[in-house]
């Protein structure tokens, strides 16, 4: 990897520290969480709120399900050449009671995963541009 600066692949969706958090929002009236952020209308059918606070979501959870990508996805995905398959996990956050999809860190395969397995959020490169390295959230097995 080059010495280019790191930049988020999608601006404002996660913090950039070593132990990162996804940035979501929470309805100030009913407590429903949203990721990506929702700041305009609450989707809880029992709530008419238009007020939200920005929150950092839990950075650990348990595997809801998992798979991998054996073939290169189409654009806007930017693939390495040659394409390197990667694992994918949906992880259930306990406090927020929601499942969030993401790639699993490089080097792990589906054989390393199991439904219910504890996972944590990290940042890893998604692709490189002329100016910087675009990073995004990925899941890895929780290390105590």
């Amino acid at each position: 990897m080059s010495a280019k600066p790191l930049a988020p692949a999608i601006e404002g969706w996660h913090t950039m520290q070593v132990k990162p958090h996804l940035i979501g929002s929470q309805c100030t009236e009913c407590g429903t969480y949203f990721f990506p952020k929702q700041n305009d209308y609450c989707r809880n059918p029992h709530c008419n709120s238009t007020n939200f606070r920005e929150v950092e979501l839990s950075r650990t959870g348990k595997v809801w399900s998992y798979t991998n990508a054996c073939y290169k996805p189409p654009a806007p995905f930017v693939a390495a050449d040659p394409f390197v398959p990667y694992a994918i996990a949906g992880v259930q956050l306990e406090t927020e009671q929601m499942v969030i999809l993401g790639q699993v860190i490089e080097g792990l395969t589906v054989d390393d995963l199991k439904v219910g397995m504890p996972m944590e959020l990290v940042l890893e490169a998604l692709h490189e541009t002329d100016d910087d390295i675009k990073v995004t959230w990925k899941w890895q097995p929780l290390t105590q």
């Binding site: 407590g31 429903t32 990506p36 809880n44 009671q97 929601m98």
Partner: peptide, 9 residues
């Protein structure tokens, strides 16, 4: 890429 949140009562 994410489900609804069921955190509200």
């Amino acid at each position: 890429i994410a489900t609804d949140s069921a955190a509200a009562s």
